[in-house]
Structure formats: structure tokens, C-alpha cells
Design a protein around this nucleic acid. Structure first.
Lengths: 329, 329
DNA sequence: CGTTGAATTGGAACCGGTTCCTAAAATGTT
DNA sequence: AACATTTTAGGAACCGGTTCCAATTCAACG
């Protein structure tokens, strides 16, 4: 049904090895080249890349496992990875796990069956089981967004980013601060980012800090904020992500209060939507594109057997919006 | 280097055909089953799915070509497609073209080499060349978001959605309306949606309608809005997408005006971010998840040779926010 | 205990390419 | 024209699976 190299060979009256040589730029005389060229054009023949990689022992596939596609951060990183990999003649195989952790394991295994040359895992949390699976499949794995011992990782500089934000809030004269974070099972955001913020605040002597925990979604963040404000009235609310900040903002305006007049508010992430929202959110923008490019470069090096540093850190920039009020006179 | 079925066979002391039968649930005695099970467990053997599909003439891959990953609509549709395909044991191969149209053609060809079983093309515009390529590769292609003669398509009900919006605006008493649309080369959004809106407005006798054209991005929309307001002061601005509406909103607040007091504003799309923004945007929410599921179901039917309707229409719902003022007393 | 039929197993061919090796053809050299 | 050298072409084996077919084993039955 489908056209194969054998058909081309027969139609052109040559051996399939000759066709193969023609396709891969080997020694073929002009006369036979012409014959083959003609037949291929007529038949719309496309070589079966599965059969090719079977022999080549190299698929030029890189698998990327992402927790979701509909988050700004993930999709930006994915786009950058895809772009960079394409430039280098790799095909990106994106798998979304819809935030089901067990699917990350399944996906690692299923990608290993596809014999991808390498895997980039955009992680939210890495368990024992992950590490076990990573070790059992014989394929290089690069972890993005979480730090794991003995594994190659690319992470954001969460501690420094948090520290910077803490210092900024202190600098604006806030002494009573709430932090809405996420579960500590998330090392990067839940632990490092938080620690940076706390240290940044603490260094200048801010003591009245209360911390809360929210899910990553807007609605839960709104609820957590609401619960918090019943018992505690800070001057500034630092949120672990922009989405959480949006949730907080929603609750604040529902209560008839205003940002930044009643509460100063900050996030982390740097969604481009932030600039539309009024007031523009003060936040930290992580360099997601750079992370993606770095991830693509790194995984290729790994598949080629070159050594790469175990831990690489991607940068960020501070984005000053209008959501923080200065309490200094 | 990598473990193959041959290795398993030798280690277990059986023929490779027996191992294959074991893996695919054929007739194998308990005793041999046990031997093979043990060897596979020890070696972490994973069958090479390339070699499998080579013989099976079926890869269980479905390719999806998307213009970008970082748009709410695209990623929602993608997630739904992926989810549904996984349920049915297909692997989704997502390719992003970063809005380069020529890459859509390239991707069609490259997917045909991967011998995917079917292709879903999330399109922004379909040219002659597209159709030529679609016909030349021997693989079922389903087009999402654009309508093309002789091709299987799933589209939003843009005309009806536009009509509904037009009627709504008229119903609120607006007589002087601006429409910020997009290029007519986009049949769905640029032509159908616009026509629906114009018809919806015209039916009630609104005559003072001016139309403008913007790119799909926020910044251009802001600029277009700005230029428009120098010459024309409508009471309502209907935007072809939510993003364009956000751009318009940005300009409006920059000019010190307010929505909906000075201008009523509407969009199309139904981003979840819309509810955060104050005032909440009145918009049309297309059922993107349903579209994704429908796309997945349809492409599978197509690969299995079942007939499917050439054109399928996905639904929408009207979302009333706070961005439209009633001019009726 | 020999026969029969079903269950189990091994061997070989095949899927669609690539590559190695050798034979034939083309070209150059004296 | 005879020989050496380089190009070009074909045949066969291989990549890692699946599947068909024939051979063997096994249990049941008369």
C-alpha cells in the first residue's frame, strides 16, 4: 500500500542499495541519479524514518515530559526547547501528564520504548520512584525546575529571586508581611523560594511574617487569601506565583479593598498578562526561554556522551509593577 | 548495548518467537512464562516500539501541528486531544510551528516520514500548498479551526457566536460600534466571525459601525485602538479576540478612560484570566475541550477508515462579564 | 499402549531501511 | 591494445521485532 524503497528500486530498475545510496549522497552516476529522481518525484516517496532509526540506533527524538501545557511557564519553556531542538534536527516528543505524578513514571517508560535519544523532565516534584525509573531506563534524563542529587538538573535561582523580593519589600518599609506559598514537597518553589524570601525579609529585621499554603490554582489561592484576611492584616502579601497573586487580587477586590493602597502584592513568574492587569504586578520574571535553550543544548550534549555540569542555574529579572506601595515617608 | 528480544530469548533459553508470544499474550506454558518473566525483570527490557510498528504498519502515533503552544486556546485544545488520545493508546506527537506557515508544510512532510497514523492540523490559514501537501501524503489529515473544501474539518461556530454578540450589543442599546478584527486571510475569525457580528448588529438597524484590523497580539491591538480613538468615538468596542480586548483595555485605561463607563468592551475566547481582570470581560467562550475530544475521536475514526462528516461544528457559550454598559434607561 | 488432537515451541521469512563486500563497468596509463 | 585504478552497481546480511508454519510435546481417550 505504502511506497517503499523496494518499489522505487524496481520502478527505476536498480537495486535498493543504490536507491539508499542515492538518498544518502553516496556514489551514484548521473544517469541512475536521474532515473531515481524521476521515480521518487512521481511517487511522492518518503522514507520510513522508523526503519531508518532501527538500523541507525538513533531516533533523533527527544522526549519532553511536562506537567501541563496550559501554563505560561511550561509552554514558554517548551516552545524554546522545541525551537532549539528543531534547529539541530531533532524532533520533540511532548507528553503532558495533566499533573498526574504517576504518569511521569509511565511516560519515562513509554518514552524509553520509543527509544528517544534523551528525555527532558519538567518536574514539579521528584520521588524515589522517579529516580529508580530514571536509573533503570538506559537513556539520559535532564530534570528541569527541580534539583535532584546525582541527576543532571537545570533550575531557576529560586533562593536568590526570593531573597531579592524579600529585600525589596523590606526596602519599601513593610513590616507586617504574609507569604502565600505552596507545598514543601516542591523543593524549588515550596522550599528554596520561600527560604530566600524569609531570609531577605529577616535580614532587615522583619519579624511579623505569617506563611500560608495554597494550591497552584487561582481559585484555591483566592480562598486561602480570604481565610487569611479574617485573622491577619498584613501590609504586604508575597505570593509564590503570579497565579496565586491573581487569586489574592481577586479576593482583595471582592472585599472592596485595593492594591496597592490597602495591600501591597507581589508574585513570581512574569506572565505577559501581568502588564495588562491594573495595577501591573510586581514580580520576578524567570528567563524561561533561556532555560529552554539551555535544556535543549544540554540534553543533546548528554546524548552525545559529553559531560555536562550536574547543576545549571537559569537567571531572572526583577520586574517592578505598581502593586507595591512604599510605606516610607 | 541495548537489550533486545534476542538477548532475552538466549538468557531464558527459548526462541525469540516464544518471547514475542509471551509479550503479546499468546500460548506459552506457565513454566516458560516464569523463566521469561524473570529474565525481563532482571534486565529491565523494554521492547523497541519502532521495530514493532515496522511490522505492524501502524505506529499509534497521531501528529498534531499547532501554530504555537503559548496560547490559551491552543494549549487547551492540545491538552484535550492528548488526554483523549492517550485513553485510546495513541501517542501524541506535538509540533509547534511558531507561527511560520511554511513550517506547517514541512511538518506535514516530516510527520509523514514518521509514519504517524493521522495528523491534526490546528490551522490559522490554509493555502493551496497546504492542500497539495495534504493530498500528496497518504495519511488522514483533520483540520481544526478552519474550514476547507474537500477536507475534514472541525470549526467553531464563529458566525453564530458573532451573531449572538452583535445582538447582545444591540440589546444593550449601543448604536455606535467599533469592531477590531483580524486579517481576512483568516476565514474563521477574519471573515465568519466578523460577518456574524455585522449581521447581528445590522438586523437591529445599527448603522454606525466602523471596522479595524489588528494583529493577534496585545501590543498591536493597543496601538490600533489608540489610532482609532483619535478619529472615532464609539460607545462599544467589539474585539475579535480576548487578547485584542485586553490590548484595547490597556489603551483605554492609559487614556484615563474606563470600561464600561466610557466604552463598553467585549472579546472572544473565554480565557480563564478574564475573570481576574476587573471589570470581568464579556466574551464568548468556545468549548475548546470539546473540540479537542472531538478532534481526537475523529482522527482515530479516520485512521481506521470509518467515514466521518466532512464538517463538524463545536459549540460556544456566552459569558456575561461587567464590561458592557446598558444604554437603555 | 497406541492414537488423536490440542497446546507449546522453534525456525524462517518478513517489515523497510542501511551498509559491507564483491563484481562489473568505466576510465586512465603506458 | 593490455593492464591498473577508480567508479558504480548489486547481493546479502543486519537492525529488533512479529507471524506463519511445521515440529515436538503432552494429556486424554479408546
Amino acid at each position: 500500500m505504502n511506497i517503499t524503497i523496494k518499489d522505487i528500486a524496481e520502478l527505476a530498475g536498480v537495486a535498493k542499495s543504490t536507491v539508499s545510496r542515492y538518498l544518502n549522497g553516496g556514489n551514484v552516476s548521473e544517469k541512475t541519479k536521474e532515473k531515481i529522481r524521476k521515480v521518487i518525484a512521481e511517487t511522492n516517496y518518503e522514507p520510513n524514518s522508523f526503519a531508518q532509526s532501527l538500523k541507525a540506533k538513533k531516533t533523533n527524538f527527544i522526549g519532553v515530559i511536562a506537567p501541563t501545557l496550559d501554563s505560561y511557564v511550561t509552554s514558554t519553556v517548551l516552545m524554546a526547547i522545541d525551537e532549539e531542538l528543531r534547529k539541530r534536527d531533532y524532533t520533540t516528543l511532548i507528553i503532558s501528564t495533566s499533573k498526574h505524578v504517576e504518569r511521569e513514571i509511565e511516560s519515562l517508560i513509554s518514552l524509553s520504548r520509543q527509544k528517544v535519544d534523551g528525555i527532558i523532565l519538567i518536574a514539579t516534584g521528584v520521588t524515589e520512584k522517579h529516580i529508580e525509573t530514571i536509573n533503570s531506563i538506559q537513556i539520559p534524563v535532564l530534570i528541569v525546575a527541580q534539583e535532584v542529587d546525582q541527576c543532571n538538573c537545570i533550575i531557576n535561582d529560586d533562593y536568590q529571586a526570593g531573597y531579592k523580593m524579600g529585600q525589596y519589600i523590606v526596602g519599601k518599609g513593610h513590616l507586617s508581611v504574609a507569604y502565600i506559598g505552596v507545598t514543601e514537597s516542591d523543593i524549588a518553589v515550596g522550599q528554596r523560594r520561600k527560604q530566600g524570601i524569609l531570609d531577605g525579609l529577616a535580614e532587615a529585621g522583619v519579624s511579623d511574617i505569617k506563611t500560608y499554603i495554597s494550591e497552584f490554582d487561582l481559585h484555591d489561592a483566592a480562598k486561602v487569601t480570604n481565610d487569611m484576611l479574617e485573622n491577619f492584616t498584613p501590609t504586604a502579601i508575597i505570593c509564590a506565583t503570579d497565579t496565586i497573586a491573581f487569586g489574592a487580587m481577586k479576593t482583595i477586590s471582592k472585599l472592596g479593598k485595593k492594591v496597592p493602597d490597602d495591600f501591597s502584592l507581589t508574585g513570581f513568574g512574569g506572565y505577559n498578562i501581568s502588564e495588562v492587569i491594573h495595577p501591573a504586578l510586581t514580580t520576578i520574571r524567570f528567563k524561561n526561554e533561556a532555560t529552554g535553550v539551555m535544556a535543549a543544548e544540554t540534553i543533546i550534549k548528554m546524548t552525545e556522551g559529553y559531560g555536562v555540569p550536574e547543576l545549571q542555574v537559569s537567571g531572572f529579572e526583577f520586574v517592578e509593577g505598581e502593586s507595591v506601595k512604599s510605606l516610607k515617608s
